[in-house]
């Protein structure tokens, strides 16, 4: 009985957990504006905790940058203008999805090149394998021969 209660408590705690966590609570009253802020915040990297967007991060700087985004949206700036504002100050790295440029080309094309190279090598390997003669397979005849040799050695001792 105790175990069942404990299990229920654990399940309750588990299902309540994700509700308490999640993204930062909206600060302003306007849900439409807040949605636009979050949309843009998801495009911007928090430079303090680099693998998070400023939408996910609770670092001081992320909060400041979210406020900055909110202010500028209120002033009627477009998303492109705000992104440009951030890149001007923090560089391309601030964009969570880096723009396709000469410097970032390797980043965008590299994985596909590697994949193509890997496929090429794999296909060649498989083709060569198919062309090999079947002699590798051990025939019943050779197995018999081997068994005979083993037997004769044992007898010889």
């Amino acid at each position: 009985m105790h175990k069942i209660i404990l299990l229920l408590v654990l399940i309750a705690g588990w299902s309540a957990g994700p509700v308490a966590g999640g993204q930062a609570k909206p600060v302003s009253e306007d849900p439409v504006l807040e949605q636009r802020v979050m949309h843009l915040a998801n495009e911007l990297r928090c430079l303090v905790c680099q693998n998070q967007t400023i939408a996910d991060s609770q670092a001081d700087l992320a909060v400041d940058l979210r406020n900055q985004v909110r202010e500028q949206l209120k002033q009627g700036k477009s998303e492109e203008e705000i992104l440009a504002y951030m890149v001007e100050r923090y560089g391309d790295f601030v964009r969570y999805r880096p723009p396709v440029k000469m410097q970032t080309l390797v980043l965008w094309v590299g994985p596909f090149l590697l994949l193509a190279g890997g496929m090429f090598v794999l296909l060649r390997f498989m083709r060569r394998r198919r062309q090999l003669p079947e002699s590798d397979a051990v025939s019943q005849k050779r197995l018999d021969e081997a068994a005979q040799i083993l037997r004769s050695k044992k007898d010889g001792r």
Binding site: V48, D60, D64
Partner: peptide
């Protein structure tokens, strides 16, 4: 105090 000039200078650390 609000860190706005900091943002202009790209301060993050």
């Amino acid at each position: 105090p609000k860190g706005t000039t900091g943002i202009d200078y790209g301060v993050y650390g």
